[in-house]
Amino acid sequence: MPYDEDRLITAPDDPEAPRRMARMRELGLTSRPDQEFDQFAARLAQITGAPYAMVNFVGDQEQYFAGLYTPSNSATSSALEAAQASAHGSPGRTMALDHGFCPHVVVRRKALVLDDVCDYPRFAGNPVVDKLGIRSYLGAPLIDRTGTALGTVCVIANEPRPWGRAGLETIKSMAAELMTLVQERADQLASANRQRYP
């Protein structure tokens, strides 16, 4: 496995990236904040009791939080912005592919439950553990009707969390709900285009 600046690169091999990028363009998913996805992330945080929630689309160069919920005036919220700034030059919604666990969920195409990331050597060395203090993760892939994994819905916490079977079922259900929303929006866009260009 390759090394970068004295640390192991933790981004998974992702041969599906070109197909995913093409499918996101077809669905009208862009790298900009989306109010509806922000509201979805806020609801996800409320349902799971997690302090952070995201709707994350994984690109070929970086991951993008189209929906993001963070607690206001939080030291960790500032840490999230600082980590993003160091990787990308300015605070925002992007994160490198070797930061976090969502790229692994997309490649695996399965939900990932990490009650305590430090219990899993494969994930304990991820940069977000030290930079952001992330200790717990729960995420599920967003798989559209063509079978393309587009990204994730996920929640994180700064302390270990016993997500359990209920957490797993909740995150999978929320991923399915979000994909229904994405598909409805894509169908509306296609219908509008057909009316505009008959």
Rank of each mutant, 00 (worst) to 15 (best):
E62K: 03
L168N: 13
A166G: 04
V113M: 11
G92A: 02
P71Y: 05
G89Y: 03
G89H: 13
P33G: 01
W163Y: 03
C118K: 12
L27I: 09
T76I: 12
R25T: 05
L181V: 08
G49N: 05
A50T: 13
P51G: 00
A83W: 06
T30M: 10
Q46D: 12
A42E: 04
L150R: 10
T148I: 02
A17Q: 10
A82K: 13
F57A: 08
V55W: 00
V105D: 10
M1V: 03
E62C: 11
G100V: 03
A192Y: 04
L80A: 08
R23L: 04
Y137M: 07
V113A: 10
R161K: 15
I9G: 05
L142E: 13
D6S: 08
F37Q: 12
D187M: 12
I171C: 06
R145K: 09
I9S: 06
P121G: 13
A41S: 04
Y120V: 12
D144V: 14
L138M: 02
S78P: 00
Q188R: 14
L150T: 01
T94E: 12
R109P: 01
F37S: 14
K131W: 04
Q84Y: 06
M174D: 05
V58C: 09
I171N: 00
G100S: 01
V128N: 12
Y52P: 03
A50L: 11
K131M: 14
G151A: 14
R19H: 09
P141C: 13
K172F: 02
Q39D: 15
I143G: 02
E36G: 00
R122G: 01
A190K: 13
Y3N: 06
K172E: 10
E5H: 01
Q35T: 14
D14G: 08
Q46H: 14
D14L: 02
R161Y: 02
A82D: 15
S74F: 04
L68M: 07
A42Q: 14
Q183W: 03
P198M: 06
G49T: 08
R145E: 14
I47K: 13
P71M: 04
G59T: 12
T70R: 14
